[in-house]
Nucleic acid binder design. Structure first.
Length: 616
DNA sequence: TAATTTGCATC
DNA sequence: ATCGGCT
DNA sequence: AGCCGATGATGCAAATTA
């Protein structure tokens, strides 16, 4: 009842070319996986080099294979010691959860969309309606003067044209033609929703990127003030992760709001949910079967985004009746929604757009859009593909400062080619952490890096943390997902402040926080760590101690180290902190390209974890 | 006040 | 965190 | 190889309900 994982990964933050980290640890959290697989142990490698020479997979026995068989023996011993009830429990829950939950893969949805069982009071978003005239779109000024019904008809017709235009190749695309609102006017929510809908029917990344790019170009051209909101909604975010704004809305709340907005019962909605497998579709179906009263106003991007933020704000304010207030906000939006707006409104609230568009594609599209928009752009002459390059720049910048507000404004004022200068790392804002990527076997790694020196270090089974210590002495701790965890680890703040060398005035430390028994000097399993309180923790209340296993430093004494090589950063790390067992230790590491040596290192790591976990 | 539901974080 | 599918 | 989405186990915290 124990699983084992081993990971390799080369380091983060771009420029560490020739280095590879091998991480090892035992992971009780993977028990379920292990049990359901033929092998009692789950053993994997994680690798993510920044540049990857091609190599062929070799099937010859590798260090890991050898290690694996050793480990299996040990495990056989430990399994007998382990209590079995837990095993059964997980098994049971697994099987009971197996309940056949409707294949809600893209299939079911497309089928449903194609079924014209909804009465066509209005053109359905999935179908193209005949177009009468094409030129209407320009009279946007008139829109405000003409009766609403007319406005709406026109919108729908021209919205369709808009999509046709947006699907064009970027080179032939004209932002003016795609827009069906006036220059400087608020961007209609319908515009974004139509793009979402078109994207959902497209599986090719290139095509999706192009559509998003065209959409962004249109917004930049017509209503640049709305660009930030458009980007946030496209990313399905409400705010930068580190700001801690949460919608606090889940399926249960959505079902309630939906039921009220449609005048039906919860049970009815739930039933439909089971049938359709998607609350967005339920919303769409329910809405279009509603007798629509006159809408107060056309939904705009800004309105939707602002409302989302209002919903999120409630979390920080009074807690009473917060759900009720949220529900009313949602209802208001739903009532004003037409066409397929309800569908995507709901999906946005669920934070599950599932459209095939996510962060990376959005960033690429943002870069592309900037290239097209900046006519005067002095794109460096030595560049083959400006588009690719721009996408790369935007992604790079985002990884260092994941705040759309800043990136968008820097993009609009300074342009892509200056972006890295106008928008860069800022202490106090968490850097996107480099994550481990699984690979099949060690042979891959050995082959790839045979002629390079690389480095290995333990991967401890705890919680990733990025500790920012600012010049003014304030400290923030961020999680793997850039959530602010500061209030959860006052002990870590104390430790880090005490153990930094006195000459150090500021830093950003990348580390793993691991539950630790200081009496016995043992690392404790993740399970224990997870029982720590999470909010407003007071030192004296702490039950589970934590040891900081530091493995990288990204910023030191006012200077970003993101461009440095890993070995240089390690030097900085070792020079900037004092180790103290049980409080702060450096991740155990070796540097070598010798297979045998690495294998020994791995075995040692496994042994140390193994004993510390079971000989308590 | 105590139990239950809901949301959401970690892995 | 793992997994599989798509391009 | 990169990106996206679907999925699981577990545990705290807040809101609701009994």
């Amino acid at each position: 009842m124990l699983s084992l994982r081993s990971c390799c990964y080369s380091l983060t933050h771009s420029t560490l070319s020739h280095h590879l980290k091998i991480y090892l640890n035992l992971s009780p959290s993977l028990c379920a996986v292990s049990l359901s697989s033929p092998k009692p142990f789950s053993f994997k490698l994680i690798l993510s080099p920044n540049h990857t020479p091609k190599s062929t997979m070799s099937s010859r026995p590798s260090a890991f294979d050898v290690l694996m068989s050793n480990a299996s023996k040990k495990k056989a011993q430990s399994q007998t010691q382990q209590s079995s009830p837990k095993k059964r429990k997980t098994l049971e829950s697994n099987t009971t959860n197996q309940n056949p939950r409707k294949t809600q893969t893209p299939n079911s949805e497309t089928q449903l969309l194609n079924e014209p069982k909804l009465d066509g009071k209005e053109p359905n978003c999935s179908n193209s309606k005949p177009i009468e005239e094409t030129r209407v779109a320009n009279g946007s000024k008139d829109d405000q003067q003409t009766p609403k019904l007319d406005v709406k008809k026109r919108r729908l017709i021209s919205a369709h044209d808009s999509i046709v235009e947006l699907k064009k190749k970027a080179a032939n695309f004209s932002p003016q033609k795609a827009a069906f609102w006036g220059e400087g006017d608020k961007v209609p929510f319908l515009f974004l929703v139509k793009v979402f809908d078109a994207i959902s029917k497209e599986s090719g990344r290139i095509a999706i990127t192009e559509m998003v790019c065209n959409m962004l170009r249109t917004v930049i051209q017509m209503t640049p003030e709305d660009l930030v909101a458009v980007v946030y909604l496209s990313a399905n975010r409400i705010a930068p992760a580190h700001e801690g704004l949460e919608l606090g809305i889940g399926d249960a709340s959505i079902i309630k709001a939906l039921a009220e907005a449609c005048g039906t019962k919860d049970t009815q909605i739930k039933k439909q949910y089971k049938e359709l497998g998607d609350l967005g579709l339920v919303a769409k179906a329910s809405r279009s079967s509603q007798p629509l009263m006159r809408k107060p106003e056309v939904l705009t991007i800004a309105k939707v985004f602002d409302t989302f933020r209002l919903i999120a704000k409630r979390i920080e304010e009074s807690g009473k009746d917060s759900q009720e207030k949220k529900k009313n906000h949602i209802k208001a939006l739903l009532v004003a929604a037409t066409d397929c707006e309800p569908q995507y409104l709901i999906r946005l609230l669920q934070t599950k757009l599932r459209i095939g568009l996510a962060e990376q594609t959005l960033l690429a599209a943002l870069g592309h859009a900037a290239v097209y928009t900046e006519k005067h752009s002095s794109s460096p002459p030595d560049i083959n593909s400006p588009l690719e390059e721009a996408a790369k720049i935007v992604k790079q910048v985002y990884s260092v400062i994941p705040v759309y507000d800043k990136i968008v404004s820097a993009l609009l004022t300074g342009g892509v080619w200056n972006l890295a200068k106008t928008c860069s790392f800022s202490p106090g804002i968490p850097v996107g952490p480099m994550l481990a990527k699984p690979t099949k076997g060690v042979s891959e790694i050995v082959d790839k890096f045979q002629d390079m020196e690389f480095t290995c270090e333990y991967k401890y089974d705890g919680e990733r943390a990025q500790i920012h210590y600012m010049e003014n002495g304030s400290v923030e701790i961020y999680s793997r997902n850039a959530e602010r965890n500061t209030g959860k680890f006052p002990d870590v703040i104390a430790a880090v402040s005490r153990l930094k060398k006195s000459s150090v005035t500021s830093f950003v430390l990348d580390c793993e926080l691991v539950a630790y028994d200081r009496e016995k000097q043992k690392i404790l399993p993740f399970q224990i760590l997870s029982t720590r309180a999470r909010k407003n923790v007071v030192m004296s209340d702490i039950k589970v101690d934590v040891c900081i296993f530091a493995f990288d430093i990204l910023y030191l004494d006012g200077q970003p180290l993101l461009q440095e090589q890993l070995d240089a950063r390690r030097e900085h790390l070792y020079n900037s902190f004092e180790e103290e067992p049980g409080f702060l230790q450096f991740a155990t590491a070796i540097t070598s390209n010798d297979l045998e040596e690495i294998q020994k290192f791995l075995e040692a790591a496994v042994d140390s974890r193994y004993w510390s976990m079971f000989l308590t």
